[in-house]
């Protein structure tokens, strides 16, 4: 069985599917990076809303994270995708454009970012709470504006506390991009399935895709570990 595997199917040029796979891989990385970045932005807003917001905002943030954590990502992605494209379409039609179609990459990033944001909110909230209160009060006493306190004190000081959780979220983001295959995004998993279905070489292509995902995970794991070590300079091990 295995001696019949034809590695030339993985060639980069037309008869081989390697090019399509790599393109899908690139798409997956783009989706993961974009969604992760959006998730961090949402997470910072959500964490600040939970910690400093008024009662209504705090409860709304709570509802958001609760829904994100209780409903399967696949269902959320479908819902966000349809609601998002529908709203965008209606908005554009109201503005006079017709036949507007939302860009696939943007939609995918939005969908992943919204899901990531819910988890990031929880991670960042814990990290911000781990900052000694006095540091933030000192910054306020210096007359810094709330935004400056955020960028100069809160965000840098919470980074080492947030990194383990955020590293975990990055792993989840890379794997969640695969779910977009179900909606029909041409990222790595869908490209793999198409290649495998066309050539009937399921093992070859699925293992190749698995190797790509695993490489991404291991490389970013090493990078994140280095970054965490750097960010934790000067902190005692126990904290």
């Amino acid at each position: 069985m295995f001696d019949a595997i034809d590695l030339s199917l993985l060639a980069l040029d037309a008869p081989g599917w390697g090019g399509a796979l790599l393109k899908g891989f690139l798409r997956s990385v783009e989706l993961a990076v974009g969604g992760y970045a959006l998730g961090i932005v949402i997470g910072i807003c959500g964490a600040l809303a939970k910690l400093n917001g008024g009662r209504v905002i705090r409860d709304l943030a709570e509802v958001y994270t609760m829904i994100i954590r209780a409903v399967p990502e696949l269902v959320l992605m479908l819902l966000f995708y349809y609601v998002g494209t529908d709203l965008a379409n209606r908005g554009m039609q109201a503005l006079g454009y017709s036949g507007f179609d939302i860009d696939g990459l943007t939609a995918g990033i939005l969908v992943i970012g919204l899901v990531q944001g819910g988890y990031a909110t929880e991670v960042l909230r814990g990290a911000i709470k781990a900052i000694p209160r006095g540091q933030i009060e000192a910054a306020q006493a210096f007359g810094m504006s709330p935004f400056k306190v955020l960028t100069r004190v809160t965000l840098p000081a919470m980074t080492p506390h947030a990194l383990p959780g955020m590293a975990n979220l990055w792993m989840i983001a890379t794997k969640d991009t695969a779910l977009l295959a179900v909606i029909g995004f041409s990222e790595l998993t869908l490209a793999t399935r198409q290649a495998a279905a066309a050539t009937r070489e399921y093992f070859l292509f699925f293992f190749a895709a698995g190797a790509l995902y695993l490489t991404l995970t291991l490389v970013s794991n090493a990078g994140l570990r280095w970054f965490e070590k750097r960010a934790r300079r000067g902190l005692t091990a126990a904290s």
Partner: peptide
């Protein structure tokens, strides 16, 4: 843990199933 569950599931179903 390093690869998506969806990919594993498809590998088992399509790959292993046909094998």
């Amino acid at each position: 843990r390093g690869t998506p569950l969806l990919l594993q599931m498809w590998l088992f179903y399509f790959g292993l199933g046909s094998l």
